[in-house]
Nucleic acid binder design. Structure first.
Lengths: 199, 199
DNA sequence: AAAGTATGTTGACATTGTTAAGATTTGTGT
DNA sequence: ACACAAATCTTAACAATGTCAACATACTTT
């Protein structure tokens, strides 16, 4: 019933869907979004040009699936930050640094994740749910910081947005080449994030 | 020697270069970046498919020129904020609100301006200079706020980056559909920016 | 007016996203 | 086991796009 990755080449290809997502993500990270073509993905996966259409409605749907894997990884980084943080504030700082670090390490993927073309037209409900996980974790983190500081909890919404904005803004500015960590006496995007959040 | 816009149709077309930029910006704002093709721009300008190549090296160069007009407008909004602000802090708040408002009103253009593809490979020096004007204005603004608060001026760099990050982050989150002003009891992106900056 | 340059057009090519039609493999009911 | 439907994959084809080459026309300079 479920796919059996052990049994080599169980079906025509095994599980092409995941192979296409993986191939697409590789091309994306190696060559950028504009070099990512459906045909190129199929080529790397070793199948015909139109094979992907049996697993994805169109190119945008494949992109959404690739972006979804990015959101899963981003949520993983967030969970790690919350686990390793010594205090609510420390958790929040680690969250921000991890967020920016992720963006700097996967610029094309990060841009795709927040490209905005994936949320409007089509379905992508599953994609949107995955995308909201990191945000919910941030929200919990901010709520704890407010509680620890004795601040009213009705500030949670707007403070969460503030925190998200500042780390997301820094991440995009670095990715797009508008800000270089070296200009701020920092050796990495993560360092710059920590420095900025510490002000 | 110089072009004479008065004399109607002075040359073959008058000044195709600016017409192409204008046509491109229209298509960009009406239909989005993925619908913006060189051929489409040429079509709207009423010229042949390859006419743009006599004014722009390639599509990316045209996009850079379009983005440059966006940075000019953004700098105009910034200047207006600095002129109308009653105090350094008020200037800074108006700058942020204007920044987000501009992004919300020109989402596709704003995304293009910060797409990051325009700064790496090619020349685009003129484009980069124009792009840095808004940033310099923000820097002056932040410096005045610090001075008014008696804070040390060596914080200017990092504080400017913080301010830029938070408004830029909010702008992109709104543009990409990750944040809706209505979810924060705001009627516009500008209002949400003001609300957030006031915390 | 001649020559040269700037600007514009037509034609062509490779690449891309996508659809249509057909072939092959897998699962299902008997 | 076997026929049949569903899933999966392939080839062929189409329109659209970015770009180049070759050619034509308009303007400038002398």
């Amino acid at each position: 019933m479920a796919k059996s990755p052990n049994e080599s080449r169980a079906y025509h290809h095994g599980n092409l869907k995941e192979a296409l997502i993986e191939a697409g993500r590789q091309i994306l990270e190696e060559e950028g979004l504009d070099k990512l073509s459906l045909r190129g993905v199929a080529r790397r996966a070793g199948v015909s040009q139109t094979a992907p259409y049996h697993h994805f409605k169109d190119k945008e749907t494949l992109l959404a699936a690739i972006a979804q894997t990015g959101f899963q990884d981003l949520a993983g980084a967030a969970r790690k930050a919350l686990k390793e943080g010594k205090s609510p504030q420390d958790q929040l700082d680690r969250y921000g640094a991890g967020y920016v670090e992720f963006a700097a390490k996967h610029p094309a993927l990060f841009n795709l994740m927040f490209s905005g073309q994936l949320s409007s037209d089509k379905d992508h409900t599953e994609f949107l749910e995955t995308a909201s996980v990191s945000f919910e974790l941030l929200r919990q983190c901010v709520a704890q910081v407010l509680e620890a500081n004795g601040a009213p909890p009705n500030l949670t919404d707007i403070r969460t947005l503030s925190s998200w904005s500042i780390v997301h803004g820094l991440a995009t500015l670095i990715i797009d080449g508008r800000v270089a960590p070296e200009d701020y006496a920092c050796t990495s995007a993560k360092d710059l994030a920590a420095k900025m959040l510490g002000c």
